[in-house]
Amino acid sequence: MTSKRQCLCCSLLCLFFCTVILQLCHNGLLKHVKHLLVKKQLHQTSLALSDIRRPQILTPFISTDPPSSSSVLSHHISFPHGDAVRDDVLNAPWVSVLRETLHKFPSKQLNLVASNGQFRSILLNWLISSLVKLPRPLDNVLVIALDSDLHTLLEERGVPSVYVDNTTVVSMDTEMQTRYSHIWITRTTVYRLISHWGYDIAVFDSDAILLQNPTQLFDTYKDVDMIGSAGSYPFLLGEKWGVTFCMGVALFRHTHRTELLWEVLAGTRNFSMDDQVKLNYALDECSIQWSPVHVQTETVLGECAADKLGGLRVAVLPHSVICRKAPCASSLYVLHRNSRKESSAKRQIARTYGVWYLRPNWTMIDSRTTGSTRLTGTEWLRAIARS
């Protein structure tokens, strides 16, 4: 009997140890399989990136002309805000209007500013600064009007404008993070589409007042893909780098690397609706390396790893050129001081620095006529500007 009990105990112990060993082997096998799957996924990602990576030259990526409507709809485009953008956005009426409007410009280099009626006076002040007050006015300016009333005003006055209804851009089930989220989503969707059509685009916030034409300044950095102004937001990356890429004044050249960046923005891990946040986290994911940071006086140059975004090259202009923080230099190109987002706060800063050009009674002047013809274009902007 004792012998049988001992055999039974030994059998149970053997069964227990075999179960433990099998479980350990099973866990190890699972880990090994997971490791192989992850390794395979990374390898496939690397191959995909190498397939779309292009030679390191700043040449157009797509046809020099905006495509026809049918080709726009058939060609896949990834938009920076991913699921927040409607699947049928390319069917929206403004897409064909935008395409036809772009054909009217003599150059593939555009200057874009987006605004809605809430910031109407801020936009008009920007237009006066850019098209009237500068010794060398800005060329090829297009307003992305985010409401119909603003577009109607600009269209009647001969200011190039395209009305983009944000309800045709932003997905209905998207929960807005702030009251400005729909603006950020809409404008970056438009910017991405124009870039996809082969244009270099300089983008401006409507409170970024031009004191000098920045075109020659941008041309100083011909070997970079993107140019921006020095920022500090998002703050975590500002602390990490000492600078961030500010979207208030920015140039996106149409290169192979920027085309890849737009694609990456659609899938970046950061889900913020703020275009500046998404862009900077995409730069962080590409392991960008910056030159020594002296944001007050020196341009900061950055370059992504060669195997990420094709080695995208970035220039961030100092506060002495595009002033975000005091003191502002006398040789300034753009005044774009930090402020609250309300139009009243932006107006007050412009007045403080002596760059508020819009007449207080501009709406009365707006109804003025010369003979039977209304003032249009720069003539109208001069009329509503303070002398």
Rank of each mutant, 00 (worst) to 15 (best):
N111V: 00
M364I: 14
L283F: 14
A306V: 11
A385F: 04
P160D: 07
R351V: 08
V164R: 02
T152H: 12
T167Y: 09
T378G: 01
T352E: 15
Q44S: 13
I122E: 11
R337H: 10
K240N: 10
L112Q: 00
V85G: 01
C18A: 15
N361P: 04
V249A: 13
S69D: 14
Q118W: 13
A48V: 05
V249I: 11
S229C: 13
S339E: 00
L127R: 08
C7V: 15
H75W: 05
V316G: 02
S121W: 07
L29V: 10
S195E: 09
V293L: 02
D65Q: 12
H26Y: 14
F105R: 00
S121K: 14
L138C: 02
A282T: 12
L47K: 12
D51E: 13
V316P: 00
P93T: 06
S320P: 00
L193Q: 03
D223W: 07
K308R: 11
Y333E: 00
S148V: 14
P318L: 07
N280A: 01
R257L: 04
H256M: 09
I201Q: 06
W356Y: 09
L210N: 03
R136D: 15
L301I: 13
I349V: 12
F17I: 15
T189I: 05
S121R: 14
T2P: 09
G310N: 08
S232D: 12
L36F: 10
V249S: 11
F79R: 02
K39Q: 15
R359I: 02
K133V: 09
K346F: 05
V143T: 08
A202F: 03
G248T: 01
S181E: 08
T370D: 15
G198A: 04
N361A: 07
R382D: 07
W290V: 02
S63T: 15
L317Y: 05
F245C: 04
L29A: 13
S343V: 11
R5I: 14
L131A: 06
T352V: 09
Q41D: 14
D225P: 02
R86Y: 06
P234M: 05
Y199H: 06
S70C: 09
D307V: 00
F17M: 12
T64Y: 12
Q276H: 03
F245S: 03
L236N: 15
S63V: 08
K325M: 11
Q276L: 02
M364P: 01
L375D: 09
E379Q: 15
